[in-house]
Computed example of a mutant assay.
Amino acid sequence: METKTKTDIVFILPNLLPGGAERVFSFIAQNIDKTQFNATLLIIGFSKDASYDVEGINLVFLEKSRVLNGTIPLFKFLLKHKPDIVLSAVGHLNTIMAYMSLFFPKTKFIAREVTVLSVDVDFFKTNSFDPWSLIIKKRFHFFDKIICQSQDMQDDIIKNYTIKPEKIVVINNPITDHFQLKPEPPSEGVVQFITVGRLSKEKGYERLLKILSKVEFPFHYTIIGNGNQKEAVLSLVDEYNLTDKITHIHFTKEVSKYLAKSDFFLQGSYYEGFPNCLIESCSVGTPVIAFDVPGGTKEIIEDGVNGYLMANEADFLEALNHSKSWNPEAVRKSVYSKFNRTKIIQQYETLFNDLINA
């Protein structure tokens, strides 16, 4: 009988559209040690929507429009291939995987959460009764391990979902690309601001635009992203008479180029999981001005080193007006020392090996 030498891991995502979980999962799956692991990236959604290039691993698309529609094909896939480890991300998919794990007792199931859950629930809370809320809340008890992207996420799950600390591991997101350090920024001219991220309510674009409407020096603001708040955001651009100062880009694979041309990355979020866009901005040497909110932002930003963390809109505006010379090399070093790809991949590999050998 042939002895099995590698661990089979299936990484599962709802889709491969632009997003933090999609970028990180596709990166980890492609870069973990191929002498130890056989990786498969399984996507519930459509191959035509793939925004990231995936090479060197098994890539499977179920070609389904919704996670719920992919449940049976996904179950059949796991039944056929019997992986050692299944790693899923995003709340609704994690809920399905939690209860599916009951049918695969020999497989280790890992959930990777993407935000500070209790804050997210409160932010979008409605008065209507949600019969699925208890099922969703109990999902963590069925996983062998839960990956949190930040310390705030871990603390939130332990406190609000009664999960034991030893069941959780904090692994930050890695710097996924080889970002080129930009040259020293020019000392004068139109100040270039940028935000990269989903156009959704929790991202706080409305308060960024409100603040920018009060800026009195010449500036240009580039927004890269799409989402269900696109029309609302663009309407506010008109309302604040900022049309000639703002460029909106739906999607681009050249994000690093735009980051390098910018003087500051602006983050308006009310909460975050672990914002990839901030470490990417710092990776090219562009500092960040952000609000001090729940999530991983505070683990990335070192005040005065690679940006500022602001308590309110008045302080944020003051930071925009503050004159400081930033060293791109120092900004870059602040994140590479903590979130470099080698370090984060090793943390994932250690987690996988510990689970298999437990």
Rank of each mutant, 00 (worst) to 15 (best):
F129M: 11
F129W: 10
P131V: 07
K137I: 09
R139K: 09
D144A: 06
K145P: 08
Q149E: 08
S150L: 08
S150V: 09
Q151H: 13
M153V: 14
M153L: 14
M153S: 14
M153R: 12
Q154M: 15
Q154N: 13
D155R: 08
D156P: 07
D156G: 11
I157G: 06
I157P: 04
I158R: 04
K159L: 09
N160S: 13
N160R: 09
Y161E: 15
T162K: 15
I163E: 10
I163A: 08
K164A: 11
P165R: 14
E166P: 14
V169D: 10
V170W: 11
N173W: 00
P174N: 10
T176D: 08
F179I: 06
F179Q: 03
Q180Y: 13
L181S: 15
K182P: 07
E184Q: 08
P186C: 08
G189Q: 04
V190L: 13
V191N: 04
V191T: 09
Q192S: 01
Q192L: 02
F193V: 00
I194V: 05
I194W: 06
T195P: 00
R198K: 07
L199A: 06
L199D: 03
L199S: 04
S200T: 03
E202V: 09
E202D: 07
K203V: 01
K203A: 02
K203M: 00
K203P: 01
G204T: 00
G204M: 03
Y205E: 05
K210P: 02
